[in-house]
Write a protein that binds this DNA or RNA. Sequence first.
DNA 1: TAGACATCAAACGTCTGATGTCTAAGCTGG
DNA 2: CCAGCTTAGACATCAGACGTTTGATGTCTA
Lengths: 226, 226
Amino acid sequence: MTLSTSHRQPLAEEVTAKLRAMIHSGEWQLDQRIPAEPELMAGLGVSRGTLREAIKALAHSGMLEVRRGDGTYVRATSEISGAARRMYQDHTDEHILEVRLGLDTQAARLAARNATADDVTALRAVLAEREVAWHAADFEAWARADWAFHARVAQATGNPLLHELYVSFGDVFHQDLLKQQRKGRMDGLTYEGHGALVDAIEAHDADAAVASVNQNLNSCAEWLRA
Amino acid sequence: MTLSTSHRQPLAEEVTAKLRAMIHSGEWQLDQRIPAEPELMAGLGVSRGTLREAIKALAHSGMLEVRRGDGTYVRATSEISGAARRMYQDHTDEHILEVRLGLDTQAARLAARNATADDVTALRAVLAEREVAWHAADFEAWARADWAFHARVAQATGNPLLHELYVSFGDVFHQDLLKQQRKGRMDGLTYEGHGALVDAIEAHDADAAVASVNQNLNSCAEWLRA
DNA sequence: TAGACATCAAACGTCTGATGTCTAAGCTGG
DNA sequence: CCAGCTTAGACATCAGACGTTTGATGTCTA
């Protein structure tokens, strides 16, 4: 804590926090339109200007999209994923994948070092969900479970920052997966490999975990280039 | 502009962009107080509400700090470094270092694959600066050169996203290094190692580059724990 | 003279009301 | 059934006023 903020928090900040909480808690779902300004004014007991400052702040960070004449929509569930959205806009899939590979590798290494038995159990459970969705050809459920697996690995590292990054980037990556599917090029290339990763984590074998991730994502990179 | 803005961009967005440009261009320096709202209103030709929305957006992203009764100050030079500032506030040095290790490793691997002769030349130049600063006991210059080296490695990867991340996080990491120095525990542990990394990059030896980074940052991690 | 206190101007925080502009949906006539 | 028009609702912007906080200045006292 560098600055001792003796000055009390402005009202607009509180309102921003409340709106963020509404989104994060899921009360306002993704892509849903939130109530109009007058209604929110009444509900929160603040003036238009204050409310608009709060909304604009969240809009600027990418969580909300304000459509003039229409309404305001939830576009992301956290600030970081808002940044991720812009990231996706400005960079190619391959470059993003390279950065992800760096994080995935490190996550695998740390998870192998720090994962508990509960972590391993949870990982296998998510993997089972993923398999069920695969066989049911429910692509959306599969993508969700796939990302949940990666996020769970990050959680198993015991590094909250890494976990936060994965959770926050989740909906953007998820959306990207869906986009890939629309290209009609989703064969089962990442179907295997995750099981080996869990085995390596359970055995606390960091090298094997890293190797598993490398193999998995390298093939994914080739697939992107194809 | 990637998104087809069928709807015209709101005025407040334009103002936000102008303010951001003022900061990014260096016209408003770090920690400097920007002109008061009435003055900006006149200069930009917008009403106070519109101006305040723009300011608040930047404040929320961490670039500006608005101090009631005093004025508004520049606190970061980009949105990402604003996010980095908050990241530093919420997580321990060790966890941040773990994430950085993941990125540094990947940067080294990709730089070894993609670096050009010019990249290598530039890297050696930065390293020379760093050494000069070290012998001159100019810690600030050393920290700046050290980070410039890492950023240059990221640039050599040919991955603009990775480069952007390093550049944007620069001032925050730089500040962190200075904080470490204040703890009075800055011995020359990272003095060596970077030379070996450049050699590996020049030889396009990815494994050696990764090994160099691992050794370097692992010792750094131990130093943090000490 | 040095420190504590009172005062003031500047700057941001918030509220209110009015008006402009855009969007999506409903209506209408063919 | 559809194309074009109309309209209600929603956000965008402006203007003015007043409240609250802060930093600086001046003044008084020990």
